[in-house]
């Protein structure tokens, strides 16, 4: 058996790692909750954001944490444009088409990255990713601590935007009552694009937080998005607190699973819990009751 301190350390580090998952899941659940589509391009867009953050570091020596504001804004714009002028118009209002369009988009993006960067795996280099902070008896990873704080702030800002601004209310209005929203003069195409943009901005932030401790290659995003899908279902499709808490929870489960079962089986726990949730509470922990 492991000493309690080690278990506590693994749990806290897992909690911190879960913040990045939570951000990826936040973007996914927001888009699902409002557009009612599963965005299959989410992983490829995360990969793009990680390459962008890596590129800014490689070309200008920009610290990934400093890349957060410009990349968040740039990816908001990219997401807005993609939804408004590519995904939206090409789906002709049919959710089935949207699914295929986002899937197609992910293939295009991944292969474009593959053509440019090859399948090499890159990282920031240096040892900044291994910095630790001593908190009492525990050694906590510095990049993860930063990631945790930034993820919480991002979730709080998103929450404030959705509950206290007209734009946020318009997003919630379109999510639940599209015709009613149109009749007060809300343009759903604009709202969909804003929502998709916010989802992409979450990805950009997640990418900057992941980069110091993770590698980049043209398929890296998928690893996170698979877990993010699990979190979205676990937390309740479309639920923002569900995505946040689900992400943190999954981070802990993965970390403890890694401790007890060995690193390669760490994710096993996530999917066992996922199946249990599907069996006993299919609308998710924070979703509407069935």
């Amino acid at each position: 058996m492991f000493p309690p301190a080690l278990i506590a350390e693994a749990a806290v580090n897992g909690l911190l790692a879960g913040a990045a998952y939570a951000l990826v899941a936040l973007g996914l659940t927001l888009v699902y909750g409002v557009l009612h589509i599963v965005n299959f391009a989410h992983g490829a867009l995360l990969t793009c954001a990680m390459f962008a953050a890596w590129g800014l570091h490689a070309a200008f020596g920009l610290d990934p944490y400093l890349s957060i504001p410009p990349l968040a804004v740039a990816f908001f714009g990219l997401g807005y444009a993609l939804q408004r002028w590519v995904i939206g118009p090409s789906s002709h209002g049919d959710d089935g088409n949207t699914l295929l369009v986002t899937l197609g988009l992910s293939i295009v993006l991944e292969n474009a990255l593959l053509a440019v960067f090859r399948s090499d795996t890159r990282s920031l280099g240096g040892d900044a990713g291994f910095d630790v902070v001593e908190v009492g008896p525990m050694l906590l990873s510095y990049p993860r601590l930063v990631g945790f704080a930034v993820a919480l702030v991002t979730a709080a800002l998103l929450w404030a935007l959705l509950s206290a601004t007209d734009t946020g209310r318009a997003i919630r209005a379109v999510a639940k009552e599209k015709l009613g929203a149109q009749l007060v003069g809300i343009d759903p195409r604009h709202v969909y694009a804003v929502t998709f943009g916010l989802g992409c901005a979450c990805l950009a932030i997640a990418a900057c937080l992941l980069l110091p401790t993770f590698y980049v290659n043209p398929r890296v995003g998928n690893a996170f998005v698979l877990v993010a899908f699990t979190i979205v279902v676990l937390g309740g499709m479309g639920s923002i607190p569900g995505a946040l808490l689900g992400g943190l929870f999954v981070g802990v489960v993965e970390s403890l699973g890694g401790l007890f079962l060995g690193d390669s089986l760490g994710q096993l726990g996530i999917f066992v819990i996922f199946i249990l949730v599907l069996l006993f509470r299919p609308t998710g922990l924070f979703g509407p009751r069935a």
Binding site: D166, R169, A170, R172, A173, K176, E177, L179, G180, A181, L183, V184, G185, I186
Partner: peptide, 26 residues
Amino acid sequence: IHVPEGRRIFPTMNVRENLELGSYRR
């Protein structure tokens, strides 16, 4: 301004938020 059949109000928002969104465009 069209007040639709079936009301089409925003069910998960409170009354005040519903009214405030009425002036979203005008």
